[in-house]
């Protein structure tokens, strides 16, 4: 009985969702023309960049069920690649594109090797090994002083088109939308369905004849490359890069954003990114009122633990569940009435 009704509900649901997304996207494009607060624009730019990062993380955690604790390394590779190219060579577009290509190559190779080493083992191994690899990159960035200037980092100039804040805002927004659409297509493709099958039941997927490890490696490579892209945008937005891009804090940001926003939903990662970045902005300002706000991350740590325990699908997943349930009740009722009438 439920089959057709559910489909209908879903298609209405999807349509309405798409309209809402389009409206939000248009509002975000118009936002800088209506509001000329510079700090707000920079904050939004930051949200877009971290949304890309969080979506790339969600591909692993939410869609494939792989936990990585070293996602910062891909972010850092991108950030340093563009910084080093702009500093050592000229801040022109060709060199920037070269840096992008190098980032894609390195992140793809690193994620492939790490995946190959550990993805055939239990999930703990990938989490541990990525954690260790990220700390290796952090040490590398600290020690290779001639290239990275160690802990202090370095500033660099960016190509002409990235210098204007408004242009850069739009570039980041468009990048985020493109990544969202691409990942949406990717996760709904047959390949993406296999990834989700792995998340739900690995043994079963394996016994259906899929080579699970290969699919997992593909997911980890795609995710790593996208994280590297986010890193590129991040360091271009700051025109500065230091070792902080490789630290655990960056990975934790992605984790908090994805978990609190909602795993397995790309929009959740975007909402999470907005939430965390804005909270960071407001709560740091509150630090003048009381010093406890200096440690604002503690609140998010506790919220994160509670979400993992009680709402494992995050904000978006929980809201979606409630909505689907109430919709279903409505359709069930109307179909009952139809049957009765």
């Amino acid at each position: 009985m439920g089959g057709r009704g559910e489909k209908k509900v879903k298609s209405i649901f999807v349509q309405r969702k798409n309209i809402v997304y389009t409206i939000i996207a248009i509002l975000l494009i118009l936002f800088p023309f209506m509001n000329d607060s510079r700090s707000m624009m920079i904050l939004f730019t930051q949200v877009f960049i971290f949304a890309i990062f969080a979506m790339s993380y969600d591909l692993l955690l939410g869609f494939t069920g792989i936990v990585s604790f070293g996602h910062a390394m891909f972010f850092g590779i991108g950030a340093y690649a563009v910084g080093i190219f702009m500093k050592q060579f000229e801040p022109t577009l060709p060199y920037f594109l070269l840096a992008v290509v190098i980032t894609i190559l390195i992140t793809a190779i690193v994620s492939y090797v790490v995946g190959l080493l550990t993805l055939r083992l239990k999930s703990h191994f990938y989490a541990m090994l990525t954690l260790a690899f990220a700390s290796l990159f952090l040490v590398l960035a600290e020690k290779w002083r001639t290239l990275t200037h160690g802990n202090d980092g370095f500033t660099f100039r960016t190509p002409e088109i990235f210098r204007d804040r408004l242009d850069f805002y739009l570039i980041c927004l468009v990048s985020m939308i493109v990544v969202f659409l691409l990942l949406n297509r990717f996760t709904n493709s047959p390949l993406g369905k296999v990834l989700q099958a792995i998340r739900e039941n690995e043994q079963r997927t394996e016994s259906l004849g899929y080579s699970v490890i290969q699919y997992k490696i593909i997911a980890s490579v795609v995710s790593g490359v996208l994280a590297g892209f986010a890193g590129i945008l991040y360091s271009v937005s700051l025109r500065f890069v230091n070792t902080s891009v490789f630290t655990m804090d960056i990975t934790l940001d992605a984790l908090l954003m994805t978990i609190i926003g909602g795993v397995g939903t790309l929009i959740g990662a975007i909402i999470g990114a907005g939430l965390i970045e804005f909270a960071h902005h407001w709560l740091t300002e509150l630090a003048k009122v009381h010093w406890i706000f200096e440690r604002w991350i503690i609140f998010f740590g506790i919220i994160y633990i509670l979400v993992v325990m009680f709402f494992p699908r995050g904000i978006v997943g929980t809201v979606r569940n409630i909505k689907l349930k109430s919709k279903k009740r409505v359709t069930d009722k109307s179909e009952q009435q139809k049957a009765a009438g």
Binding site: S123, H124, L252, I292, I298, G301, I305
Partner: peptide, 26 residues
Amino acid sequence: PVYGNHVQQILITLGLMLVLSELLKV
């Protein structure tokens, strides 16, 4: 509460790590 669920365990213990080290600073 999360015995038997690997992904949840990994995530939750890392969250605890975050809280513990921030509490230390408090």
